[in-house]
Design a protein around this nucleic acid. Structure first.
Lengths: 345, 345
DNA sequence: TTGAAAGCGGTACCAG
DNA sequence: CTGGTACCGCTTTCAA
């Protein structure tokens, strides 16, 4: 006994034969634009299709009409709540538009990101959205831009999520503005001795937040001691490490830490606690993003709310909209004060 | 001035012409199986391809060779750390295998899940992995099974993630066993008056964990009062609500809550705290999954560790492996005791 | 309204 | 080893 040949799924051809019409008619009845099929024929075709469990072959359609029904999203790391929230919004909007989402994970490497965009482009999605952390000065940047430009020239829609540094449609988050406001609010709450946990300067998001924060302090007349601007990894682990070191030195007189992302801030809080300091009492902590778990940690984390789902939705809308392909949509942010920064005095 | 025609990307045809060879040779040089192209020709073709920035058209390849290079993953909700961790593992393994991941979000609705699988199937991915929360008794179950069977009969690989209740390859998590061990450990720590926060009985994962836990209590000689088996939503909000109500009644003498997932448990802890009870001191809490944030909440959450990334990896391996299409891989779980259950006495 | 037929971008078999 | 060519499944003129 040998393997049964895998049952091939029915093709349009089969449906047409079953319905006793030409394959052209079948095509028109099942998908077609101008509905010019006699109702009787149409229903016979539909019946045949149902009977045979016919499914159109998207690849065939794609190649025949020169366009697909997919939207591609590149993220740094799906498991990071920042990206997964964006992905949630994006895929919701995509589904609403009848598009299937193709997800690629770049693992925060510009090199990998470039490879991915190259591959993706070959698949001719209707839109490519890139939500990785843009990194300055990467030698791959020019190549990435070139790849995306070529894709766009061939009719694709490009959307960048985060900062505008390439000439494509962009959904920006008001990182600098949010950080500025946060700094003012914290200075207003009486804090004077700040530390900042930031990612390497090449990470744009981190840099923008950091600069906005510094500007906000300046505007509030607070001096920021550069020794306390600590560079670490843009992850929970990075936040943990930075906090651990600071705690080892007995906090060095620092009253409050601003970490450029909530995951870093949360890691930092745990590190402080592990070292015997009570976050919110011995040391205040603030983050950025307002991810879901910000309200579930103790004390609840002060943060800058970024409507991440909305960012994903906006990216899709921008891609599908008929505005110029280089529009920028700015998503605004807002300070949320919680118990991790009770204030001084 | 009118729109420039979108620059079409180069086709194999163009490459062949540029290289001065036939399109068949070009195809062989660029992709082909048996490499039987004179080296000189091969390099000319490659040069031409590079010059023209040629990318093979996956849809065309798919239709020509009758198979795609994609793997589809259906999840309940990308933004849920449970699913996003699985998605992370899955896409890592997929990339390693040269497959592109197509992600669909079913929003925890069996109806939507069915529609999605239908659509997905049409796209002929190499594998379809379904990680949604399997729900018993949904009238769509038979239809789902039928759809997947047809897909499999046509040569596709199906992998279910969670429990084995359909005759496909399955990655199961030892939900019952882990919950059983957890119950024994907690009973051993001196707890006697338990409450359980569970999802509706139709949600298999929840039921398995619940039953395993109850069995573990029985094995430890602890009686579980049915009044304290509380049904709620399988989300953070569900955990929060259940805890809020319990707190309203002054905890009713309950010493410890087992929530069938960490997100529920974390929501519950926040609710207890909001109501003025200190988790870990006034009321112990345990969860399941051991998601990342379990160690960042206060007190750190006792849980059952489920290696979620590993689940995703295993799903992909199972799909690509050449074992029988109905293999089951069991992912084992382990109790992690933390400060949210300090023990009594 | 309908069918025939010419592609869409590639693959693979078959002679040469 | 290489080119010619028949498809793959579907869409879309073009005539009838």
């Amino acid at each position: 006994m040998h393997d049964a040949a895998p049952a091939q799924s029915a093709t349009l051809h089969d449906v047409a034969r079953e319905a006793g019409v030409s394959i052209a008619t079948a095509s028109r009845a099942l998908n077609g634009s101008a509905r010019n099929v006699r109702t009787e024929n149409a229903s016979r075709v539909r019946a045949a299709a149902a009977k045979l469990a016919y499914r159109p072959h998207p690849s065939a359609q794609a190649i025949a009409r020169g366009s697909t029904r997919t939207a591609a999203l590149v993220v740094g790391d799906v498991a990071d709540p920042y990206f997964s929230a964006i992905a949630g919004g994006f895929s919701q909007a995509a589904e609403a538009a009848g598009l299937i989402v193709t997800l690629a994970v770049a693992g925060r490497s510009p090199q990998r990101e470039l490879e991915i965009v190259r591959t993706l482009r070959g698949r001719r999605p209707r839109v490519i959205a890139v939500a990785g952390s843009r990194v300055d000065g990467a030698d791959t940047r020019g190549a990435l831009a070139g790849e995306l430009e070529a894709y766009q020239a061939a009719g694709g829609r490009v959307v960048m999520v985060s900062q505008r540094d390439l000439p494509f449609g962009t959904v920006t988050v008001d990182n600098a503005g949010g950080a500025h406001q946060l700094a003012r609010a914290l200075a207003g709450a009486g804090y004077r001795r700040f530390a900042i946990f930031r990612a390497p300067a090449s990470v744009r998001t981190s840099r923008d937040r950091c600069e906005g924060f510094a500007a906000g302090l300046r505007a509030s007349g607070v001096t920021l001691d550069d020794r306390f601007v600590i560079e670490t990894e843009f992850t929970r682990g990075g936040g943990y490490e930075a906090a651990r070191k600071l705690a080892e030195r007995g906090l060095d007189g620092v009253e409050i830490v601003f970490a450029v992302s909530d995951v870093m801030a949360i890691g930092a809080m745990t590190a402080f606690r592990d070292a015997g300091f009570v976050p919110g009492r011995d040391i205040a902590v603030a983050g950025f993003d307002d991810i879901d778990s910000a309200i579930d940690v103790t004390p609840a984390l002060t943060s800058v709310a970024v409507p991440l789902r909305e960012v994903g939705l906006a990216a899709m809308r921008l891609a599908l909209g008929d505005g110029p392909a280089t529009d920028t949509v700015q998503i605004s942010t807002g300070v949320v004060l919680r118990e991790s920064t009770p204030g001084r005095r």
